[in-house]
Design a binder for these strands. Structure first.
Length: 290
DNA sequence: ATGCTGCTCCGGACGC
DNA sequence: TGCGTCCGGAGCAGC
């Protein structure tokens, strides 16, 4: 499950490979073509397959940017800016190869759904087992308004003020803290793994109501989220289930996690508990987290 | 005017 | 072996 650190890893790997290249053509798998043909929004969002495949050729990749869990491919065509926006969802991955057979893991090769051919001769392949990911061709962020509503980057100097401001809104004050910090309008890029870790490190019960946490503790919690995200980026992200970096690489952060996916508390050894909060499985230590 | 709930994109993992 | 059920980022329609 790629969260901010994993997406950052993908971005850093992708950047030197694709920057400056020109897209020659785009191919979409028969599976996606068929899903789209019966009206489903499978991976390619907002455009039909033909429009998408016609839009990209002739564009040059000017630079990449990560925004929350999205990767923006900033493009230029005839001097005009466009963007290809990518979200990996649950199981999306990019592969830079010379041909499809270079994707050695069968499950990724089998679910290769969008292939970008470069003028330079190599390919960029988007593979997605669960098809929860998305690709959008846009002129600007405003063409897909939810992008404008995302919380600031957690490392941005305004991010903490934004977080505190949101925590006082009626809409959020009665919410469970875990649901709150996993909301992309509140914190950018913090999913189940890092929300779980940050709350464990802070010894806060994931179901505790936002309004029952002091301002000081909220500030510390936000800082802990930033620390755990940066720690993960430094360690190449967490390689869990279907997440891969470019060309199938793996990170090391999964070995540093203390609560996510654990049977016993890494601190006191108590058997961990699981509770569904905001519709998502949440693991916590009933002894340490209050 | 909010804010819930459920639906939608799916296949793999798991239990019986 | 085979079938049913659960899971999940995130937006959105409908109540």
């Amino acid at each position: 499950m790629p969260e901010l650190p994993e997406v950052e890893g993908v971005l850093r790997a992708l950047q030197p490979i694709v920057t400056g290249k020109t897209i020659k053509s785009v191919e979409v798998s028969e599976t996606i073509y068929n899903s789209k043909a019966i009206g489903k929004e499978a991976i390619i969002k907002g455009l039909d397959v033909e429009q998408f495949c016609l839009a990209l050729p002739g564009t040059k990749i000017d630079h990449l940017e990560r925004r929350s869990k999205y990767i923006y491919f900033h493009l230029l065509k005839d001097g005009l800016p466009y963007m290809l926006v990518s979200h990996l969802g649950m199981s999306g991955a990019w592969f830079s190869v010379k041909n499809l057979h270079e994707i050695t893991e069968v499950k990724f090769r089998k679910h290769a759904h969008v292939t970008i051919y470069f003028e330079e001769g190599d390919l960029l392949v988007y593979s997605d087992i669960r098809r929860f990911g998305e690709l959008r061709f846009l002129e600007t962020e405003a063409d897909y308004p939810p992008l404008l509503l995302m919380a600031p980057e957690p490392f941005d100097q305004h991010a903490l003020d934004h977080f505190l401001h949101m925590s006082a809104l009626p809409k959020y004050e009665n919410k469970a803290i875990k649901e709150f910090i996993m909301d992309g309008h509140v914190v950018s890029g913090c999913g189940n793994i890092y929300a779980t870790e940050a709350l464990f490190r802070m010894k806060i019960h994931p179901a505790r109501a936002v309004k029952r946490i002091s301002r000081e503790r909220k500030i510390h919690l936000f800082q802990e989220i930033v620390i755990v995200l940066l720690d993960s980026i430094e360690n190449g992200g967490s390689t869990i289930s279907d997440y891969r970096t470019i060309n199938g690489g793996a990170g090391n952060m999964q070995n540093r996690l203390q609560m996510y996916g654990k049977k016993e508390c890494g601190f006191c050894g108590t058997k961990t508990k699981q509770k569904t909060i905001g519709g998502r499985t949440s693991t916590y230590c009933p002894a340490c987290q209050k």
